[in-house]
């Protein structure tokens, strides 16, 4: 009996299936794709409205807080750096990632609270949702981003508890990091288009 005959009788086991992308990361990536198109639509509408307006932003309306928001932007970018560091630490042991993860959470929370404070100040100065087209776009785009940050923070707080219990899977953590990078990476683009 030849080796070929033996292989026909006892075929070799099927090759091991290997995931190219973890399911959690793939699902998050597809979701991010839809989010990218949502914000691209907003930016597109904003840009066309800005180009059509004789003055943009319209005169006689409160000025957007460029400098303070730049500081807030820095905090958000730092939170992504902390998240990246948490990812690196996680590979060495989940417990080691806790401090960096907590820093990312704290900086993200700071961003949302600070932005809430800025909105409160702008509303007090008379910049409402219906003050102008510019103001409407501002609240819509920045508010939608803030909702995404709040949602991501909620998920991250839940995952932080799992991290503390030692039940956070690397795939879910990778998906959470990916979403946070998206939320953070999107903000400088929005800041550039809406504030500057």
């Amino acid at each position: 009996m030849t080796e070929r005959d033996l292989r026909l009788i006892h075929p070799s086991p099927p090759p091991e299936r290997r995931q190219i992308v973890p399911s959690a990361v793939l699902g998050t990536t597809i979701f991010i794709g839809t989010e990218v198109m949502l914000f691209a639509g907003f930016i597109s509408a904003y840009s066309i409205s800005a180009a059509a307006a004789p003055m943009w932003p319209p005169p006689n309306q409160p000025r957007l807080p460029l400098e303070m928001t730049a500081i807030n932007t820095t905090a958000l970018v730092l939170s992504a750096v902390a998240m990246w560091w948490a990812g690196r630490q996680f590979a060495q042991g989940p417990a080691k990632a806790r401090l960096a993860y907590l820093a990312a959470l704290a900086l993200g929370t700071f961003f949302v609270v600070f932005q809430g404070f800025e909105w409160y100040r702008l509303l007090a100065e008379g910049l409402g949702l219906t003050t102008s087209t510019h103001a409407s776009f501002f609240y819509l785009i920045v508010g939608m981003h803030a909702l995404h940050v709040i949602g991501a923070l909620g998920a991250m707080f839940a995952l932080f508890r799992a991290l503390g219990r030692g039940t956070l899977s690397p795939d879910v953590f990778a998906a959470a990091r990916l979403y946070w990078y998206f939320v953070v990476g999107l903000w400088p683009i929005l800041y550039w288009r809406v504030y500057l």
Binding site: I43, S44, I48, A51
Partner: peptide, 15 residues
């Protein structure tokens, strides 16, 4: 309006 036309074309290509 050239600025508007450019924005419309640019955003069409972008999207």
């Amino acid at each position: 309006d050239q600025a508007f036309s450019r924005a419309l074309l640019g955003m069409s290509v972008f999207l």
